[in-house]
Design a protein around this nucleic acid. Structure first.
Lengths: 152, 152
DNA sequence: TCTTTATAGATAATAATTGTCAACAATCGA
DNA sequence: TCGATTGTTGACAATTATTATCTATAAAGA
């Protein structure tokens, strides 16, 4: 099992690639979709649907929240954004590394930080052997306090 | 950081211990709370609030869903049940091993299986060093298909 | 340009959970 | 054991996050 994959992050190139992909899958390229996609490709901070909504509305005031949700689901389904879900509030999304990877989540300010752990694939393989499950994905979140919040 | 702790599982003894603990914390011991606690201490299968509700109602038909939610929150706060939350449906709970530990979740039948990974504490320690976060908890879930569902 | 049909936007509906509050009952002290 | 105190229950309203519905619109291909 190989869960992770490498995606070089060049927002402009990825935007073009994703547009081609969506077109191939017979989805239409609307200005709203492009705007939302751009936001994801340029956000380092794992935005929520509500945050994306606020940003799209800045340039595109008529956009509906429902459209953001639909686009988020679409991008999730084609594998171009990753959903991060945990108790307490809405889901968060990662459009830069859209494959499962561990996160460090600050329970004070809600900041989410990426972290790569090389061992994940090995652990998943071991678990497959011992449990008989066929593992296809994972969700690994560590909760605590970020350096900035520790100082307060 | 030591996230895991060992809790021997003797439902009767734990019931008594938790009751003493709740009393010490000035919470009242009501029949509803005892009934719900018993259910958690005897469920191997990570029940949802709705499932617990159905079970309590069997012996105690007047119980309200709100009471189940309130009791779940209480038990969560005093650290005697673990909340397992992931996208798609309601939270699930573990009253047998109420400390963070990895799970294998079948995306077909929703069965949740426990799994111990010795490496978790080491990984958390490493992440603390490299990130500066102070880690206090984690949530590690692997998703896939359980052996039974693979056969279908 | 015209036609087809997926999509956007508005809003209703749903699901899970939390808040409110009066009646009740667990606990403690006399 | 009884009575007073106050935390808890149960019923239900409210909230939050998300999805479904439906009509007008606009993207894409002929």
């Amino acid at each position: 099992m190989q869960l992770t994959r490498s995606v070089k992050h060049d927002p402009k190139q990825r935007l073009d690639e994703i547009i081609v992909k969506l077109r191939e899958l017979n989805f239409r390229i609307t200005p709203q979709r492009v705007a939302i996609l751009r936001i994801f490709l340029n956000s380092q901070d794992h935005p929520s649907v509500e945050q994306v909504y606020a940003q799209v509305k800045a340039d595109f005031p008529s956009t509906s929240l429902a459209t953001v949700y639909k686009t988020v689901n679409l991008l999730k389904e084609v594998g171009e954004i990753l959903e991060i879900s945990f108790a307490g509030g809405g889901n968060r999304y990662d459009g830069i590394k859209p494959y499962p990877h561990p996160h460090l989540i600050c329970t004070t300010c809600n900041k989410i930080m990426d972290s790569e752990i090389g061992l994940v694939d090995q652990i998943a393989n071991e678990l497959e052997q011992t449990s008989g499950y066929r593992i296809v994905s994972h969700q690994i979140e560590f909760f605590g306090t970020c350096p900035a919040c520790q100082k307060k």
